[in-house]
Structures are given as C-alpha cells and as structure tokens.
C-alpha cells in the first residue's frame, strides 16, 4: 500500500537565538485532511516552530517541505498564495481598518499586484474588488460576524477578533491552516463555536496544524499530537497514545497536574 506524500513535512528543523536552542531538530508530518496538534509547556518553542513554518523567522537548520516543494527560499508573503496561512498567538488584526477590509486583505494574493499594473487594468481591479468583498462577506457569514463587517476591527471583543483572524486566513483558500493558540482567552461558548468551525473546515478537506494549551480542546479535535519540550520533540501519536506516554506525563502533563494542584 502506498500512502500519498504528506502535505507538510518538517525535517530536523532547528532555530537558535544566540545560545538558546528554541527549536532543536524537530521532525513530523501533516497529511492532507489531518488535524495535528502541537503541545508543550510555556517556552517549549511552539510559536517559534510556527514562525519557521510560515517563514516569518529564518531556519537555522533543517527543511520545511510543503506540497512537495522546499519552502526555504519562499518569502512569507508568497506562502498564502501557495496555500498556507496562519493566525497569531496574540490576535494581529489591522485595528483601524474595518472588519471586512481585514478579511479582504487575506485575499490580497488574489488581487492584481503592483501599482502600475493596477492602474492600467482599472476596470478589472474594480470588479475584482467587488468579488473580493463578496467573498469576504461569505467568510464573515461563516464565522457569524457579517453584521459587524463595517466596524473598525479594534472595536470587536477579543473572541470575535479571533474569528475575524480565522476568516482572514481562510479567504485565500488555504490547504493548510496554522493556528497558534486559537482558543486562548475564549469563553466556553466561544470555544465550542471555534471547535464547530474547525470541524466544518476539516470536513471540507482543510488540514490544520494547531498549538493549544487547552487539553480538552486538543484531545477532542486532533488526529495526531506532537509534543515539544525545551525545543525538542519528545513524542508524537494519537491523543490516546499521548495520554498514556510516560515521557509526556513526566515532562508535560505531570507538570500541568502539579500546576493545577496548587
């Protein structure tokens, strides 16, 4: 039996900041249609790993292969067009643009690039703009925020800003969505809503790589989980396997329990 090549494969990826090894020779794969979770204690290197995958920080070693292509030389702004988008641990919206403008920016890679070419193709630019607005409205509808489309993004409460960020990431039609702690700061109802939205997207074939501290959330949604500690991958497997892995319990879950005890 031959398995299809993975959508994303991370091979021996490393990042050093001066003397600190934030990510140290981490390898794992994400297959099409999978939801993979990355867990680990604070400072384990999860966000750094995401920055490496999305190209915001240069690699110190290893390779990131996406859809069969080496991503080392692909600048971050070209990755959304290739099918990889992300959200941030701390929501990063363009605060004084409106909600819908924020979402439209996510589809920027689909618009005519450059000043001169835009000017020369004015009618096309205007038509594209209308289409993009339409599409943005569709995604706002999907996350349940179409009513707030024209408000400045900074006026929305945190939970809704998170949803706008997801809509902004989805509008470019990614194959892989990277979510850095999407449930952080959400209340119970918002977390359930987020879970539903992610399941729906996954049902449509989207692959998701996510970091999360909320154990119930991650155990409930992920097909596989990768555990980082001090920059190294100490385990990976199904939620079931991870729950029973002694190294993980020692390094991570044990500490968590200890935290919860006091």
């Amino acid at each position: 039996m031959t398995t299809p090549p993975p959508l994303l494969s991370i091979r021996e990826v490393s990042k050093r900041f001066g003397g600190l090894s934030a990510v140290d020779a981490v390898s794992f794969e994400v297959h099409s249609g999978e939801i993979v979770g990355v867990i680990g204690p604070n400072g384990a290197g999860k966000s750094t790993l995401f920055n490496l995958v999305s190209g915001l920080a240069p690699l110190t070693g290893g390779d990131v292969i996406f859809g069969g292509n080496d991503m080392t030389l692909v600048p971050p702004h070209e990755r959304s067009a290739i099918g990889m988008t992300r959200t941030f641990q701390i929501v990063r919206l363009f605060g004084h643009l409106s909600v819908i403008e924020n979402v439209m920016l996510g589809g920027h890679c689909r618009t005519t690039q450059g000043f001169a070419s835009s000017l020369l193709r004015l009618p096309k630019v205007l038509i594209d703009d209308r289409k993009l607005r339409h599409l943005a409205m569709h995604w706002l509808n999907f996350v349940g925020l179409s009513k707030r489309a024209d408000e400045p993004a900074s006026h929305l409460p945190h939970g809704q800003q998170r949803m706008v960020e997801i809509a902004r990431a989805m509008i470019s039609g990614p194959k892989l969505l990277l979510l850095d702690e999407p449930a952080a700061g959400l209340n119970g109802a918002e977390t359930t809503n987020l879970l539903n939205i992610l399941r729906q997207l996954n049902d449509r074939g989207l692959s998701i790589l996510l970091v999360e501290h909320d154990m119930k959330f991650i155990m409930g949604i992920c097909d596989r989980i990768v555990v980082l500690d001090h920059g190294t991958g100490i385990a990976q497997g199904t939620p079931q396997e991870i729950r029973q892995n002694p190294a993980v319990i020692e390094a991570y879950l044990g500490k968590r329990n200890g935290d919860a005890a006091h």
């Binding site: 941030f88 643009l97 403008e101 439209m104 920016l105 920027h108 835009s118 703009d129």
Partner: peptide, 26 residues
C-alpha cells in the same frame, strides 16, 4: 482599492501584513 488597504496594513503591522500575502518591501 486594494493598494490602499495593503498600505494601511503595512503601516499597522509589517509582520501580519506579510503573513496575509503582502510584499511589504515592494
């Protein structure tokens, strides 16, 4: 147009702008 939106995004947050697909330098 999208040009103005992209420029606003560059002003607000260059990192986020590049991650949504804007070529900040250009």
């Amino acid at each position: 147009t999208h040009l103005g939106r992209a420029l606003e995004a560059v002003k607000t947050d260059e990192t986020a702008a590049s991650s949504v697909g804007i070529d900040v330098t250009r």
